[in-house]
Amino acid sequence: MIKLDRVFKFYRTGGVLKIVLDHVSTRFESGFSYGLMGVNGAGKSTTMRLIAGTELPNSGRVRRDVRVSWPLGFAGGFHPQMTGRENVKFVARIYGADVRKTLDFVEDFSEIGDYMEVPVRTYSSGMMARLSFGLSMAIDFECYLIDEITAVGDARFQARCVETFAERRKRADIIMVSHSMQTIKDYCDRGGVLVDGQIMMFSDLDMAIETYNRLNR
């Protein structure tokens, strides 16, 4: 379970105060996958980073008792100066996974070939997402955070993603941000809508989508 306890998060950009989460308390229960929806700029990605722990709240706490992935998305969680291979080795080590096996899996899965030996900063966003996705599938996470990662690679690669992911879904949960309601319906059982610094949680996904659609009108 991931628990947000009075989480307050704001940004100050050019003197303008932007409140992302205004003392939000909510929980993401284990055994359920959540779709997180919100209009552009509502703070979905920031919320994902807060859940992952790669960003900290200004006050309040985020508690996790499951192993949470880094937010998967086009930005990737990679060190730009390190090669793909170095990043994979590093991640395998920090999560206590077998380095050799992880490398084999990621090389095979991401299909970026010789680019494994090149610094990640030279990658296209698609390659980055492939590596990020492959690497996260190689590590056993209990909860995957997915930030708008739906259309990566060609149809064949996508089919493999869906297949691998479906397998992983049997053991792991997802918290997903997407603008595609179909994707959210495919993967999630519950929904949260981010609006005005609050998260409205729905145990019924259709109601969440309906609320989101009403906001969008």
Binding site: A52, W70, G76, G77, F78, H79, Q81, F90, V91, I94
Partner: peptide, 12 residues
């Protein structure tokens, strides 16, 4: 300074 990007992995 050099390892700051590695903080993108939540457990670091």
């Amino acid at each position: 300074m050099l390892n700051k990007p590695l903080l993108a992995y939540p457990i670091v």
